[in-house]
Design a protein around this nucleic acid. Structure first.
Length: 946
RNA sequence: GGGCGGUUAGCUCAGUUGGGAGAGCAUCUCGUUUACACCGAGAGGGUCGGGGGUUCGAGCCCCUCACCGCCCA
């Protein structure tokens, strides 16, 4: 005898190992089988399984198992990426904790060796954790972005793009992370609104020049007119004033028109060397914001950078790699003089020469940027060059607005990102994006839900050059070498580079590539490219990429660009974008909020199947999923329900004979459940084919619980326990057969419990994981569906009446059913026993000839139902009153419906315009209601007479 | 500021060419009849955010307002 419940803790590991050992996770080697492939969006090698991974991988596994059972040759390609910053951070932290030398002290080679040791020991734990979920990846093909083969792909791609002019090196403004001392991508920057200040400073005009400053309101009335010898500038970052190259005003701004072209003085630094900068016009300043005039610091602000480029304004870098104020180079006096010459019209020197100019005065050199800010604000205020306002007491104070400001933070370091002018390698993303955009436009790749294509297009059409270099050690070192003169040689190997350089001594570029550079190649590099492998031929393009929307830019976009460029074909046909998992209150889960639900804890407590089913059932195509334990518990219960259904089958010796043909079944109940199973398979197929995981899960759930368990098993009991051996045999066979189909249908969602039941409920040729997906053709049976549907309605009606009338459950009451026609009369007759059993009543079947009034006189109340009338013998006279009120309530409801339908059908326009079948449907309904009303009325009348 | 999405039962959410408002959980009542109390039977509960429009007919299409969320500046 089977246990009462499934014990996931005991079974899951055993089952998983059996699957893996059997080779079920590997694609079948059959050229006739359709290929189906998914590459896992590679998690960080430092990653731990969180609930988002659980959802992502559950959905992949559902599809993979479904396709495998359909007979496809399925490859689910697993692996991890090397996560440059994250991994380096983990290992550096570990070194610090162990009190060992720092990364820099131990040197590049030793450090990298150390990272590999870390990886061998504790990297890629998420791959083990995925096994707990039941993920059926082909582990024999696990890849890592720094593997030899994948690295070869990276080198090839870099060199080729360089040769094509799609990768270049240059000095550009990039997001600089001062903690990790590397450039990071736009996508790794999180813009947060924080409390900040807006300071207002006076930039005095050169030579004591003055002008009339006039401010007007919207109607053109003058509200302020005064002589000024300065221009007022608002800034949230005073420390960058040192690097100002100009002040810009809008060309339409009349307030400043008189001084455009003039020079003004930056009010910081030693008095003797105050720098003068020009007042220029540019479309960028917003006339209605602040004073309307903005300082231009091209080397430390992205907007300013653009303005500076347009207007040939020099870019003065003020900070070092740790975002401290520069302490290098010649004296401030010397540098300021150089800058002054440029402002006064000297030719703009080369980039490198400008970069060598350090405009940080000695007083501020080496200070942290925020320290420098404080000192600079204090100095300006002291000098009287702050714009003043009055406090509540009327005292003059510097104008400092408290303001919410957008500040960029590194998503890993958490420190404020500094726009920084540095030498970096860039990929020409705009060019690469063209094909990637076209491929989605013409439908070679389709997003599901389609609406995400808008997001994809939006980003791709405004894409910026992709900074691919990182100032890290852990990663693919950029295959570029320099000779003593700074000439660059890009080649796949040092030998090639040397050959190019004519044997000159070379040093390799210190930087590594962005991790995403290698991830972008994942859909083909994992298959063996650039080698011409059979996997590339068979499994590229992959079938679908499953990921969350926040990753569209990271993976989808980049894989599309590289896939199209190097394979000349899309990397995946479909992109399914799933929701984000939030907590039960809809909050994003985060460690700091303490609302993180650990999927492994859920697995521990409820089993992997429950977690998987919960995620799949909630994977509607919305934006997020709210996760709660109650929900998981509910689906755990569902697994138990299935378990007990199987246990019931076992107890009743249900097995499917080898020669069982479901089409030959003759008993209506059996025909009916086969028909229901067939329509359920259709619904699940439709759901999974359309990435409607929740629809598929709901169909399976409803079938197993509300159809098979609630009705089929109950209706089958008399047959299974009865004397009719032929009926018993057929029912046993059918029930076992249907249970098998249910196990198959549920297997993609709940692989463990279904596999366990599969092995416990019969002699099997194969594991369930490799069994064939149900094909239930020719089993639809409308007659059986109508008949059992009628029976179910009747039983439900009688149960409701018993409950409404408050009849004692332990007492058995006499119930009679009068069929309104020969068909229902015989149904009532045939199902007499089961109706009694499921309603807890005694029952006889009336013949139409019998007088209704006789029944009434016999103490029975009458209730019209579907195609029949139910009589219930009441134990007391008082109950007739509640029968009356029950009938009256129903009559009222009916009247309402009838009125609504009559009005509708009385509307000529409706009859004229609506499709004929809709009109006919409404007519039928009206007739049905009307006849019900008549019967109710008659029943009531008879009751009144008593 | 630009873009996207949401607002349906107490809660979480489905609702795919416009034609009977649904599920799970929660609540209430009843019940231990040998598959299952991680269960069974029954019930209550919604002006589908507000307003306007198109239509014979709108949760669904259009306009508008409000509120909430996300992404990008």
């Amino acid at each position: 005898m089977m246990d009462k419940t499934f014990n996931p803790q005991d079974a899951e590991t055993r089952i998983y190992e059996a699957w893996e050992a059997s080779g079920a996770f590997q694609p079948v080697d059959d050229d006739n089988a359709e290929a189906f492939s998914i590459v896992i969006p590679p998690p960080n090698v430092t990653g731990r399984l969180h609930i988002g991974h659980a959802l992502n991988n559950t959905l992949q596994d559902v599809l993979v198992r479904y396709k495998r059972m359909l007979g496809c040759s399925v490859l689910w390609q697993p692996g991890t990426d090397h996560a440059g910053i994250a991994t380096q951070m983990v290992v550096e932290r570990q070194l610090a904790e162990e009190g060992q030398m720092s990364r820099r002290d131990m040197g590049r080679e030793a450090f990298i060796e150390r990272v590999w040791e870390w990886k061998a020991e504790s990297g890629g734990q998420i791959m083990t954790q995925l096994r707990r979920l039941g993920a059926s990846c082909d582990w024999s093909r696990e890849r890592f972005t720094l593997d030899e083969g994948l690295s070869k792909a990276v080198m090839k791609v870099f060199v080729q793009l360089y040769k094509e002019g799609l990768i270049y090196r240059g000095k550009r403004l990039v997001n600089w992370d001062p903690k990790f001392e590397t450039a990071i991508s736009d996508l790794e920057v999180e813009n947060l609104e924080v409390d900040g200040f807006m300071w207002h400073f006076k930039y005095p005009l050169a030579g004591g020049r003055t002008y009339t400053y006039v401010e007007k309101d919207e109607d053109g009335n003058v509200v302020l007119e005064e002589e000024r010898d300065y221009i007022s500038i608002a800034t949230t970052r005073p420390e960058t004033m040192l690097g100002d190259g100009a002040v810009a005003v809008h060309p339409d701004d009349e307030r400043y028109a008189p001084i455009v072209g003039a020079l003004c003085e930056i009010p910081v630094g030693p008095k003797e060397q105050r720098r003068l900068i020009p007042i220029i016009t540019d479309e960028y300043p917003d006339m209605n914001f602040g004073s309307g005039a903005v300082k231009i610091t091209g080397a430390h602000d992205f907007n300013d950078y653009e303005v500076a480029k347009r207007n040939n304004i020099p870019l003065y870098r003020l900070m070092d790699v740790q975002a401290a104020m520069r302490a290098d180079g010649p004296s401030y006096a010397e540098c300021a003089a150089q800058a002054q010459a440029i402002a006064k019209g000297a030719d703009l020197p080369s980039e490198a020469e400008v970069d060598a100019i350090n405009l940080v005065p000695e007083d501020y050199r080496g200070l942290d940027r925020f320290e420098a800010r404080k000192k600079i604000v204090a100095a300006i205020s002291e000098e009287g060059l702050a714009v003043m306002t009055e406090d509540e007491q009327g005292n003059a104070i510097p104008l400092v607005e408290k303001k919410k400001i957008q500040q960029p933070f590194g998503d890993r370091s958490g420190v404020v990102i500094e726009p920084m002018l540095t030498d970096q390698w860039f990929a020409d993303a705009a060019t690469l994006a063209k094909d990637a955009i076209a491929a989605v436009e013409d439908g070679r790749t389709t997003f599901h839900p389609k609406t995400w294509e808008k997001t994809y297009f939006e980003w791709m059409r405004n894409i910026q050059p992709w900074c691919v270099s990182r100032q890290l050690w852990w990663g693919h070192r950029i295959p570029a070498w320099y000779d003593a003169d700074g000439n660059v040689y890009v080649a796949e190997s040092e030998d090639d580079a040397k050959a190019q350089a004519g044997g000159k001594a070379l040093t390799q570029d210190e930087d590594v590539l962005d991790t995403w550079f290698s991830s972008a190649l994942w859909p083909f590099s994992t298959l063996g490219w650039p080698d011409d492998t059979k996997e590339v031929k068979r499994f590229y393009p992959t079938s679908v990429l499953i990921t969350a929307f926040d990753i569209i830019f990271f993976w989808v976009a980049r894989m599309m660009m590289q896939g199209l460029h190097f394979m000349d074909e899309i990397p995946f046909k479909d992109v399914y974008i799933h929701a984000l998992v939030r907590d039960e209150k809809g909050q994003k889960m985060s460690k700091s909020k303490g609302n993180v639900i650990d999927p492994l804890e859920i697995v521990e407590e409820y089993g992997a199947d429950a977690l998987r089913f919960t995620l799949a059932a909630q994977a509607g195509q919305g934006r997020d999923i709210r996760m709660s334990k109650e929900r998981v518990e509910g689906y755990r219960n569902f697994g138990t329900k299935l378990w007990n259904a199987a246990r019931f089958c076992e107890m009743n010796e249900c097995v499917t004979p080898a020669d069982f043909d479901p089409k030959s079944v003759t008993r209506t109940v059996n025909q009916w459940i086969l028909s229901e199973a067939a329509s359920t398979v259709k619904a699940i197929n439709a759901g999974l084919d359309g990435y409607r995981f929740n629809d598929a899960a709901a169909a399976a759930y409803r079938f197993v619980w509300n159809v098979f368990c609630d009705w089929h098993l109950e209706l089958a009991k008399p047959l299974l326990q009865g004397e009719d051996e032929a009926a018993k045999a057929e029912t046993r066979a059918t029930t076992a057969y249907v249970l098998d189909q249910a196990l198959k249908m549920l297997h993609p969602f709940m692989p463990f419990v279904t596999e366990e039941l599969w092995s416990q409920t019969g002699q099997r040729d194969t594991q369930l994981i490799t069994a064939s997906w149900p094909v239930l053709e020719g089993l639809d049976n409308a007659e059986a569906t109508a008949e059992i549907g009628w029976l179910i309605d009747l039983i439900t009606d009688i149960r409701r009446l018993r409950s409404e009338l408050g009849l004692e459950p332990k007492d058995r009451y006499m119930v009679n059913v009068l069929g309104h026609d020969d068909v229902t009369s015989s149904w009532a007759q045939n199902y007499r026993a089961i109706i009694c059993r499921l309603t807890g009543t005694h029952m006889s079947v009336l013949h139409p000839a019998q007088e209704l009034s006789e029944m009434a006189e016999g103490g029975s109340a009458e209730f019209p139902a579907s195609r029949c009338t139910i009589f219930i013998q009441l134990p007391s006279k008082e109950l007739f009153e509640s029968v009356k009120s029950s009938l009256q309530t129903k009559l009222k409801k009916l009247d309402g419906e009838i009125m609504r339908l009559e009005k509708k059908l009385g509307n000529e326009k409706f009859v004229a315009n609506a499709p004929a079948e809709v009109v006919a449907e409404q007519r039928e309904k009206l007739e049905d209601y009307a006849s019900q009303k008549t019967k109710m009325g008659e029943a009531l009348e008879r009751l009144q007479g008593m």
